[in-house]
């Protein structure tokens, strides 16, 4: 194919790589031998049907669940994530689907929640300045950082949640359904935001059910099905391929062959470089 060179892994080095990660809840295998690589400056979309294991995978990376087996390598070192704080201190930030913002607090308070400067005499000025900087880096348009979150729109709240994730200077940011429940304009804003985060050189993992959004920003699309890798696709893959990989509706020789070809491509590309 003509675009083989374009399919090389992005210039950035590998931030995160999972090898043969399994997670079992009793008799249920939520994840089986899952492999995943994320490079710096790359947006990886994680797609799959309900129950495919996306959220479990995110929770494993966020330190909420510990994997039953398999290795997680982050920044070249093999790591174990025993709790949310392990993940945070390594530089893995997560923006959860429900954003987890306190509506009664203002933007500054939310961004610095749990990280306040000056525990016995809050340094409001320094926190406000840094907040404006973070929002500026994201070219975010928040009218006032001293208004409670309740007065912001869905897209603005997503912005605040992402800015909050960026506060600790993470190397990898995971977004769970960042565009669910957003309007057209807000969705576009959030997608722009994701691109800006990528351009800052961060690795981005994005979970979404919306194929349009996925195609719009993702550099690679990793499909999970029933807790297993079910192919790696690119934004220009046809919808049919993608949907059949997600649903398994055409789980036959043709789709498997397709899948093999796509999986092999990045490896061969990496070999030539």
């Amino acid at each position: 194919m003509t675009d083989a060179t374009e399919r090389m892994p992005p210039a950035g080095e590998i931030v995160l790589s999972l090898r043969k990660v399994c997670k079992q809840f009793g008799a249920v295998s939520a994840l089986t031998d899952v492999d995943l690589d994320v490079h710096a400056g790359e947006v990886v979309a994680l797609v799959g049907d309900n129950g495919a294991g996306k959220s479990t995978l995110v929770k494993v990376l966020a330190g909420v669940h510990t994997p039953t087996s398999g290795t997680v390598t982050f920044g070249g070192r093999q790591v174990t994530l025993n709790g949310p704080n392990d993940a945070l201190s390594l530089g893995i930030a997560t923006v959860f689907q429900d954003l987890a913002l306190c509506e009664n607090l203002d933007v500054v308070a939310n961004i610095y929640l749990g990280e306040e400067l000056g525990p016995f005499a809050l340094d409001e000025v320094a926190m406000e300045v840094r907040t404006w900087q973070l929002l500026g880096e994201l070219s975010a348009r928040i009218p006032s950082v001293r208004e409670p979150i309740a007065s912001l729109s869905g897209g603005q709240r997503q912005t605040v949640a992402i800015a909050r994730a960026l506060l600790r200077d993470p190397k990898l940011i995971m977004l769970d359904e960042p565009t669910a429940a957003l309007g057209v304009a807000q969705t576009a804003e959030v997608l722009n935001l994701i691109e800006r985060v990528r351009d800052k050189g961060l690795g981005v993992i994005m979970i979404s059910h919306n194929m349009e959004d996925v195609r719009a920003v993702a550099d690679r699309i990793v499909v999970l099905r029933l807790g297993r890798n079910n192919g790696i696709f690119y934004p220009d893959s046809s919808n049919e391929e993608l949907v059949s990989a997600i649903t398994g509706a055409s789980d036959n020789a043709v789709s498997r062959r397709h899948e093999r070809r796509h999986v092999q491509r990045p490896n061969s590309g990496g070999g030539t470089s």
Binding site: P84, N85, L88, F96, D98, L99, A100, L101, C102, E103, N104, L105, A109, L113, G114, E115, E116, G118, P119, F120, A121, L122
Partner: peptide
């Protein structure tokens, strides 16, 4: 109003789960 403790109190009252995820 001026300490981390007070901020955490308001956060827990506003959204307990968000406060928990923020490491409080």
């Amino acid at each position: 109003t001026r300490t981390k403790w007070g901020r955490s109190m308001l956060a827990v009252g506003g959204n307990r789960e968000a406060a928990r995820r923020a490491g409080i």
